[in-house]
Design a protein around this nucleic acid. Structure first.
Lengths: 348, 348
DNA sequence: TTGTACGCGTTATCAT
DNA sequence: ATGATAACGCGTACAA
């Protein structure tokens, strides 16, 4: 005996397969009594319909997908939750698909769009330095979220904060506290996406204040280490300390990195924020509950998620044009940053 | 024009569909030249094969799946990584599937096993209080990981630590420090799985030392709050403090809960570990890098993952019988626990 | 080495 | 309200 199929159910119920299909899919044209009977038999027999066959046949699945690169980024969790709610509201189903670091998210999107007959896709995370041409292969609406599609790419829909601007904001805040030697932990050198924008914002803020950019204060994330982990922040900071380059503030471009960084400083006998200020980015739980609480730029995850859904569905339904939506980040000052003591002594 | 299919490719290349199929699937019986040509056309045309159709035809996919309930549990990340490696080693593909909190993991397993023609399944996380009968519906090999299938269930394969024993170990350690009033944060009252085992271990350790169990020291997690989050630990501890029930140690049954708890204590002016010891469970990054470092029971995630793969594949390949594999947890003493001051003063 | 034709399990169309 | 049957796109046995 092989697997049990819709035909077997039909036979047992002494009806046609189409009737069984109707029973399963809540079609209107069916006698409630026969439907009930069929569903009962299905239940008893433990029949499980084959989704592959369904997807193959189905023309339209009324579904969208979220492609996530870098699961484990806790930031994405509430994001997904909201997105799912928004989908439910509109009676869409929502498939969540993990994308490996080495995979090309567009290829993955292409595949599962075909497989599941999707109407739209949301890209979450990842290094989006794809050319417009690559995106052109994807014929259904899509939105990049948490990612800036960049000045030149108005044709690509995106919802995010302005990473350059927010990074500038944070750096400027640290500068305002009197810090002149601000180290930064940023993405790998090859990064052409968020990491680069945040680094650029930092550099600009520095130069606007007439402060010389010092490459010795920049820590690039290692390729192999799993990016944005606590350990990553910890190790990089250790290495930074071994350089003996003095700094009075450390700007880690994610809250998790900041937590690890604070630990490394702590072990080196450097107290935060008295001896050194530390700032993060993202506004995640990690930075809210640790001690000291971490000064950060909060990305309005909920608003971004909702706007992402709105934009995607408006493109699907009303054939609206792609556009870029930018949210403001919020500077949240907590306990990890303080006025530079160096400044005070210098000024006296 | 609709979607482009294998037939279109065949036409353009002036070959039969089977030749195209052979080219895509690396079949041996094909002229390298024609293969090359076909692949080139595929590349140019942007053709994407329909996985639904493939899965439908395919008898055997040489694939397994990991079903995860409670993504965001950082504990699972390295676990998955290893599991994927083990799959690769054996030339299996591995599909990772998120399971919603409200979903029945067995139903999900049934569905995707059918859809993707799986050979095996790993269940990660979730409250496994399913009856043997329910599991009986799943005809392919499966392993519960990080979960104890329980004394009575030798027929169900599982790899985990002994949550009862490890929880006992931790409680006993706290007791050994002289703590007599040990509060505990545990899963919701209805939990019949890990949470219950950990609570039971705590109770047993207490009674073995002749200490009265006090219901006032038990904090159950709220249903709605997202379990095992920092915030959850924070809120519950706040509530515990408002009870005014004195305690000198707090045992949070996960490291993330512990982080939140420490924050709540901190805000109440209670210093850890001087005024109150805090312990966690799991051995996650969160507890390793925060300040103070959290005393915990480390679950050997890597070993568990490897053993899970070994067991699953041995069941698949060699038709070995399901069995229970138990690993020892490791008590890691860090900075969040210390000798009870109450004890010292009492003894003087 | 290659092409033809059938069938996988389901849904949709068209009769009845 | 129901049943027969034709697709859906692909892999594969078989024939060439």
């Amino acid at each position: 005996m092989g697997t049990i199929t819709i035909k077997d159910i039909a036979k047992r119920c002494q009806v046609g397969v189409s009737t069984v299909s109707r029973a399963m899919n809540d079609h209107p044209d069916i006698n409630p009594k026969t439907k009930k009977k069929i569903l009962k038999v299905i239940e008893e027999s433990g029949y499980v319909p084959d989704n592959s066959a369904r997807n193959l046949k189905r023309v339209d699945a009324r579904a969208v997908a979220v492609l996530i690169k870098g699961i484990g980024n806790t930031f994405f969790n509430q994001f997904i939750e909201i997105l799912e709610q928004e989908c439910q509201k509109r009676h869409y189903s929502c498939v969540i698909q993990r994308v490996e670091e080495y995979e090309n998210e567009i290829d993955v999107a292409l595949q599962i769009a075909r497989e599941k007959k999707l109407r739209g896709v949301v890209f979450l995370g990842g290094n989006f330095s794809h050319s417009g041409e690559e995106f052109g292969r994807l014929k259904i609406p899509y939105v990049l979220s948490t990612i800036n599609s960049g000045e030149g790419n108005n044709r690509i829909a995106s919802v995010s904060v302005d990473d350059f601007k927010e990074s500038y904001k944070m750096t400027d805040y640290l500068l305002g506290l009197g810090h002149k030697r601000i180290a930064i932990i940023t993405a790998r050198k090859e990064d052409e996406s968020i990491g680069k924008l945040r680094l650029l914002g930092y550099q600009r803020a520095l130069s606007d204040q007439g402060i010389q950019f010092d490459e010795d204060l920049v820590c690039y994330m290692k390729m192999h280490v799993d990016r944005y982990s606590y350990r990553s922040g910890y190790k990089i900071t250790k290495e930074l300390l071994s350089r003996k380059t003095p700094f009075t503030a450390l700007y880690a471009t994610s809250d998790t990195l900041a937590v690890g960084a604070i630990r490394a400083l702590f072990e080196a006998g450097i107290h935060v924020p008295d001896d050194c200020s530390v700032a993060g980015f993202d506004g995640m739980e990690a930075g809210e509950f640790c001690i000291p609480g971490i000064t950060t730029i909060r990305q309005p995850a909920k608003e971004i998620a909702r706007a992402t859904a709105d934009l995607l569905f408006s493109m699907i339904d009303k054939k609206e044009e792609p556009k870029r939506v930018i949210f403001d980040g919020e500077l949240i000052i907590r306990e990890s940053t303080a006025i530079s003591r160096i400044k005070s002594s210098e000024e006296e």
